[in-house]
Design a protein around this nucleic acid. Structure first.
Lengths: 210, 210
DNA sequence: TCGCTCATGGACTGTCAAGTCCAGAATCGG
DNA sequence: CCGATTCTGGACTTGACAGTCCATGAGCGA
C-alpha cells in the first residue's frame, strides 16, 4: 500500500530518530527536531507512525538493537573467534566514541526509560546476546578446547557485563581506558580455562594447570 | 544562615530528588511531584535551589554518588576483603532490585544525560572507584598475595565493568541472573593470579597466606 | 514589642513540545 | 483525463512543567 517514496520518507524519519536515540536516549528525541533534520512535517510523521512518539521510539529502538545484533552474529566457538570479536568491538567502540555516539552505551542508557515495553525490548536483546555467547563457549567445552569446569553461562555473563559496563564507564569518563582492558581481562579469564594439550604433553603456555 | 528547620526542608526536597533520580534518571524528576511528595512548595524549592531544576539535580546526583561511594570505602587488599565486597554488592543489589531502585544501574543510566557537568560528576566517581580498586590489587601484588604479572588497572577495570554492566543487564532483563555471575567470574579471575604459597609449602585453599 | 531575616504557600506566566486537523500537491490505476 | 489514494505542509490546540512573584507566617535578637 505504501509508495516507494513513502517508505523512503518513513525511513528518513526513522533514521533520524535512531540517531537521536543513540546520542541522548529517549529524552533527546524531539519530533520537531526530527522533522527539521529530515525536511518532513508533522503530517507525515503521524501518517507513518500513528502511535506518535511512543510508536516511533519503539520502532527505532527495535531497529537499533537489530543493527547492533548483527555485530554479534559471529559464531564464538574458538579462541580465535573470541579474539577477533573483541578486536572488532574495540575498533567499533573507538570509532563511535570519536563521534560521541556509542551504541553499546546507548543501550545501557535505556534501562531507566519509563516505557516498560522498551525495557523489555532491550532486555530481550541482551538475553539473546548472552545466549549466543554461552552457546559458543559450550561448544568450546564440548569440543575439548575448554576444561569441563568452564561454566558457559557465567563466562558469557562476564563478557556481556564487561561489554556493557566498559562502554558505560568509557562514555561517562569520556575515555577509552576501561572497555578494552575489561574485555582483555575477560578474554584472559576464558583462556585460563583452556584445556591442557593432549594428555601426555606438558606444554606450559598461559593456561593454568588444574 | 539557614535555620535548622530550613535545612530539614532542603534535605527532604533533596531526598525526594535523589529517589526520583534513582528510579528513572533525569527524566523522572518533576518539580511538582517532588513538592507533592515532600509537602513543600515552589517557593521553598527555589529558595533553597536558586538554580532551579539544574542545580537540584546536580546536588542530588552528587549526594547519590557520595552515598554510593561509601559502599566502596572498604579497603580491598586481600582475597577475603574482595569476597566480602562482592557478597555485599550482591546482597545490596538483591534488595534494591526488589524495590526497583538499583543505584548501580541508575548511575549507568545517567551516561546519556544532556548536562555535561553531570556526566563529569559520574565519570569522576567511576574513575575514583577504579583507582580505589586498583590500589587494593596493587597492594595485594606488592605484599606477595598476587603474582607479579597481575595488572591492577586491568583487573580493576574488569571489576568495575562487571559491576556496572551486570547491574545494567539485570535491570534491563528484570532478573538477577547476570551481576552475580559476572562478579563471581571476575573474582575467579583475580584468584587465578594468586601467588603460589611460600616456596616450601603446598597449601591449597582459596586464600593466600601473607 | 518592634523589626529583621528566614520560611512558606500557591497563584500566575511563559515556553516548549506532542498531537490534531485539514487543505492542497503528487501519484497512480483505469 | 479523472477519480481515488497516498503524500505533504503547516497552522492550531492542548497539556505539562519550569520558573516568577508576592503576600503571609514564624522565629529571634534588641
Amino acid at each position: 500500500m505504501p509508495t516507494t517514496k513513502g517508505t523512503a520518507t518513513r525511513n528518513r524519519i526513522l533514521d533520524a530518530a535512531v540517531d537521536a536515540l543513540v546520542r541522548g536516549g529517549r529524552g533527546a528525541v524531539n519530533l520537531d527536531h526530527v522533522l527539521a533534520a529530515t525536511r518532513t512535517s508533522k503530517g507525515q510523521l503521524f501518517h507513518y507512525f500513528p502511535g506518535g512518539k511512543q510508536e516511533l521510539i519503539r520502532v527505532a529502538t527495535a531497529r537499533q538493537l537489530e543493527r547492533l545484533a548483527e555485530e554479534a552474529t559471529v559464531v564464538l566457538d574458538s579462541f580465535d573467534a573470541w579474539n577477533r570479536w573483541v578486536d572488532g568491538i574495540v575498533r567499533l567502540h573507538r570509532l563511535q566514541t570519536r563521534s560521541d555516539a556509542c551504541e553499546m552505551a546507548a543501550v545501557a542508557g535505556r534501562v531507566l526509560d519509563p516505557d516498560p515495553e522498551e525495557r523489555t525490548l532491550v532486555g530481550a536483546s541482551l538475553r539473546s546476546w548472552h545466549r549466543h555467547m554461552a552457546e559458543g563457549i559450550r561448544t568450546m567445552r564440548d569440543t575439548g578446547q575448554l576444561r569441563a569446569d568452564a561454566d558457559p553461562a557465567e563466562l558469557a555473563a562476564l563478557f556481556l557485563a564487561a561489554l556493557e559496563g566498559g562502554a558505560v564507564v568509557d562514555k561517562a569518563t569520556g575515555s577509552l581506558d576501561y572497555l578494552e582492558p575489561a574485555l582483555r581481562a575477560a578474554l584472559a579469564h576464558l583462556r585460563s580455562f583452556a584445556a591442557p594439550a593432549l594428555p601426555s604433553r606438558e606444554t606450559a603456555g598461559p593456561s593454568a594447570a588444574s
